[in-house]
Simulated scan of single mutants.
Amino acid sequence: MRKNAIPLLLLSMLSASAFAAGQMKPGLWEMTMKSDAMKNMPKMTPEQMEQMRKMGMNVPQIQDGAMVHKICVTKQMTESNTLPGADGKEMGCQTKNMQQSGNSYSADVVCNSAQMKGEGKVKGSFSGDTAFTSTYDFKGTMHGQQVNQHHENSGKWLSADCGNVPPAGGMMPKK
């Protein structure tokens, strides 16, 4: 389950963030996600987390049943309305039917690859350029296993200085 859940969790967090990047203030952001997958995921030991870091993954913290991750959103990302690695193409996913009205946005996610098949829906809203909330629902298969997930995401801007936190693309595994 853990092997399948982590890519889906990262994809859902990034999908919500990527579509809305045009309204995000550049700087350090804290992203929080609660999901059905988190409830069923076995707890990882510090050794397992360290092993994932050695494999090049920027491993988020788990707090109160939610995944919490700090990312850096650069000015270039906000101007281009995209976050690196957030398009889902590596997993065979495409974002379609993107709509934005005022502070609200929505998009469909369609996945059709050997790794993932199915459809999802992202809906969210912004509170200015320093906070957002969104939901992501996905039904399909991942690595041949049925997936029916609901995710609740939120983000809040922390500061203009990212410190040593890498830009958002650093969440994805290194190749």
Rank of each mutant, 00 (worst) to 15 (best):
N4L: 14
P7S: 02
P7W: 01
L11P: 02
L14Y: 03
S15E: 14
S15R: 05
S15F: 13
S15P: 08
A16S: 15
A18W: 09
F19V: 15
A20K: 00
G22N: 09
G22K: 05
Q23E: 14
P26K: 03
G27D: 01
L28V: 01
M31S: 00
M31D: 00
A37V: 11
M38Q: 08
K39H: 04
N40S: 15
N40Q: 12
P42K: 03
K43P: 13
M44S: 12
P46Q: 02
M49H: 12
M49Q: 15
Q51R: 15
Q51M: 15
R53L: 13
K54I: 11
M55K: 06
N58Y: 15
N58S: 10
V59D: 07
V59L: 06
Q61C: 06
Q63A: 14
Q63E: 14
Q63G: 10
D64F: 08
A66F: 02
A66V: 07
V68Q: 02
K70G: 00
V73A: 00
T74Y: 03
Q76S: 11
M77S: 06
T78W: 10
S80G: 06
T82P: 09
A86R: 05
D87C: 04
G92L: 03
C93A: 09
Q94T: 15
Q94W: 11
Q94N: 14
T95C: 05
T95S: 13
T95M: 13
N97S: 06
M98Q: 08
G102N: 05
G102E: 09
N103T: 08
A107S: 11
C111W: 07
C111M: 03
N112F: 07
N112V: 01
N112E: 07
S113Q: 10
A114D: 13
A114G: 07
Q115F: 09
M116P: 09
M116L: 15
G118N: 10
G120H: 11
K121M: 09
V122N: 00
G124W: 04
S125T: 05
G128Y: 08
D129F: 08
D129N: 08
A131L: 06
A131T: 02
F132K: 00
T133W: 14
S134D: 05
D137Y: 10
D137R: 10
F138Q: 04
K139N: 12
G140E: 14
T141F: 02
Q145W: 06
V147A: 09
N153Y: 01
G155T: 00
G155P: 00
K156I: 05
K156C: 02
W157E: 01
W157Y: 09
W157V: 01
L158E: 11
A160D: 15
A160P: 05
A160T: 13
A160C: 08
D161Y: 08
C162E: 08
N164D: 13
P166F: 12
P167N: 04
G169C: 11
G170T: 07
M172H: 05
P173A: 07
K174V: 12
